[in-house]
């Protein structure tokens, strides 16, 4: 794996977001929706607390629809346009290509996330929040976005069709979110042994994300997201190797 090549791929990919309206549409919608969720659904003002938890609480749901829209093109577009043949006959490895593309998409969500800084400024203006918790929230949110993107990357590698990639990614991501929800856990907790309930719950984005976003920086939550990312990217590389010519 050669860092300079990943960097070259990364830059091309990131630039391509901004060469099309994707970047602007995504960022505007992301900022708009996260604002609505925070102020209306999250009762940011009425709560009377100087923190950003109403902001972060809705991130899994925001990502559920926005991240698949970003990830669906990662490989499906290369397949459709035939550029996958060009890319994979250049002197790069599939791992480098997978990483370059993924990191660009991840960096792009990081940019969108950074642009929510007015939220942070407002809360600091209105009160004295614990900024360490807020930073932890941002880190957790970014890690979760990475996991969504890695899932999306893998599913995008399966098809030429971006719409199919989008829909399947939403469903898989939903499963990962819901596995920590009482809705699902209650269903199991009545009869299944505690170990199984905990295992299902431990796969949940929500469980891990809410821990980090409350400022609890547990190594296990980091490992959870990072290993999830590694697993799905590994699967992406394998699928591309197997199916690149289809």
């Amino acid at each position: 794996m050669r860092g300079n090549l990943i960097w070259v791929l990364f830059r091309r990919e990131l630039a391509s977001y901004f060469a099309t309206p994707i970047a602007y549409v995504f960022i505007v919608i992301f900022l708009f929706l996260s604002g609505i969720f925070t102020f209306y659904l999250g009762n940011f003002f009425a709560r009377g607390q100087a923190d950003l938890s109403p902001f972060f609480t809705f991130h899994p749901w925001l990502y559920l629809f926005l991240i698949p829209a970003l990830s669906m093109r990662l490989w499906a577009e290369e397949r459709k346009g035939g550029t996958i043949e060009l890319l994979l006959t250049l002197p790069i490895t599939i791992t480098e290509a997978v990483l370059g593309k993924f990191l660009a998409a991840w960096a792009f969500t990081a940019i969108a996330l950074i642009l929510t800084f007015p939220m942070w400024i407002s809360v600091n203006y209105l009160g004295n929040p614990d900024n360490a918790v807020i930073i932890a929230g941002y880190i957790g949110s970014l890690l979760m976005a990475g996991a969504f993107l890695a899932i999306g990357s893998c599913i995008s590698a399966l098809t030429k069709n971006q719409v199919i990639a989008f829909v399947i990614t939403v469903v898989v991501c939903l499963a990962f979110i819901l596995s920590g929800f009482p809705l699902v856990l209650d269903f199991f907790s009545g009869w299944a042994p505690q170990v199984i309930v905990e295992t299902i719950s431990s796969f949940s984005f929500l469980t891990h994300f809410s821990a980090i976003s409350k400022g609890v920086l547990d190594l296990r939550d980091f490992i959870y997201f990072l290993s999830l990312i590694a697993f799905w990217l590994f699967a992406t590389a394998i699928l591309i190797e197997m199916k690149k010519a289809d």
């Binding site: 070259v8 006959t89 250049l90 002197p91």
Partner: peptide, 28 residues
């Protein structure tokens, strides 16, 4: 090897200048 795949695929949102720059960088 230099390879021209069938249909000469290239990234549609790039310009020839940036595309060639990209390929040159990948080619080292």
């Amino acid at each position: 090897i230099g390879y021209l795949p069938e249909g000469a695929p290239a990234y549609p949102d790039m310009t020839p200048a940036s595309f060639l720059e990209f390929v040159a960088q990948v080619r080292g």
